[in-house]
């Protein structure tokens, strides 16, 4: 693959992450509406929301510091960076070599760190509350994420996502208990990290239980648009991470295979949306003090996955 083709694939990957994320979120919201017997807004509604927010003025609090103003760009940038290293349409992703799965976790960490800082920056009580909750969840979710990452990289003897994808693609009959455990752990982590229902509710504003919405409550205009967009991309990035780790079939290895890979990714994302909504509809939001148990379960599953890799394989 020459340099031009590499650049082309990378550009497509970045464009996919940035542009398809609102579409994916629109699909999830649409399904959610249907599952609750409501009429859904069009699948393009997230784009319209973003456009509206981009065209509005920014209203800054008087005591907002540079942290508050810089955070939307930092968060958007890190999540986009995370999306650009996950080989979801082609396993020959040039940027994939620059960040492995552990660096990916660190990227999410940076985004979260800045979001939490921005939540506290203006000094409203909701922001501080959201930040402290977010940090509690993060401190519990990160060990589980890392354990999952380690277990997956134990298989392919590499932490690089490209190598993992190629390794899993090369297996003929693949029924591995540790992968199953890690898969379930990953679903739990994904729900927690992207702020979906059992942990956080993405649709509530001004509720005492909010976490992510609490932190970005003071944002408006362009800043809010970037934060929301980053949130959508985070869901998309986690879904594509799931695709890359657990169902990498069809991910192309050259430019010619990319259109077919795109089609498969679209199908897989459609299915992931259905799964996410089924989980969300079937569960009630947890009390915040139950969240440690929820994430403890994720950690336990990931640990069991690692153990059964040694024990059973």
């Amino acid at each position: 693959m020459n340099i031009l083709e590499q650049l082309l694939t990378e550009a497509m990957q970045i464009a996919l992450t940035a542009l398809a994320a609102p579409l994916f979120v629109g699909w999830v919201r649409m399904l959610k509406c249907w599952s609750q017997g409501r009429r859904a807004p069009g699948i393009l509604q997230p784009y319209r929301n973003l456009l509206k927010l981009f065209s509005k003025d920014i209203l800054l609090a008087e005591n907002a510091s540079w942290v508050f103003r810089a955070t939307p760009y930092v968060v958007f940038g890190t999540i986009l960076m995370a999306g650009s290293v996950i080989p979801v349409i082609s396993s020959e992703l040039p940027l994939s070599a620059s960040a492995d799965i552990i660096a990916l976790v660190a990227l999410f960490g940076i985004a979260r760190f800045f979001t939490a800082l921005a939540g506290m920056d203006v000094g409203t009580s909701f922001g501080g509350m959201g930040s402290s909750r977010e940090m509690m969840i993060a401190s519990l979710a990160e060990p589980a994420v890392l354990m999952t990452a380690f277990t997956v990289s134990l298989f392919s003897h590499s932490t690089s996502l490209s190598v993992i994808v190629k390794y899993v693609q090369g297996l003929s009959f693949f029924l591995s208990p540790s992968m199953a455990f890690v898969f379930f752990a990953f679903i739990l982590i994904m729900l927690a990290e992207t702020g979906r229902v059992p942990v956080d509710n993405p649709v509530t504003h001004l509720e005492l239980t909010m976490i992510h919405e609490g932190m970005i409550l003071e944002y408006s205009g362009r800043h809010l648009a970037l934060m929301e967009w980053a949130g959508m991309m985070k869901l998309f990035v986690f879904s594509s991470l799931g695709i890359a780790l657990f169902s990498p079939w069809g991910i192309a290895s050259d430019v010619a295979g990319v259109p077919f890979a795109l089609l498969l990714v679209a199908l897989k994302l459609t299915a992931i949306g259905v799964i996410v909504v089924l989980i969300e509809t079937g569960m009630a939001k947890m009390r915040i003090f139950r969240v440690p148990e929820f994430l403890g379960t994720a950690f336990l599953l990931a640990t069991l996955g690692m153990l059964s890799h040694f024990m059973l394989e």
């Binding site: 199953a180 069991l304 059964s308």
Partner: peptide, 24 residues
Amino acid sequence: HGISIQLNNFLAAFILLTSFALLA
């Protein structure tokens, strides 16, 4: 044979999982 080994290991993992689920 290979498939049954994998299946058996898989079920073993699920038995382990249910043991933990009983605790939880």
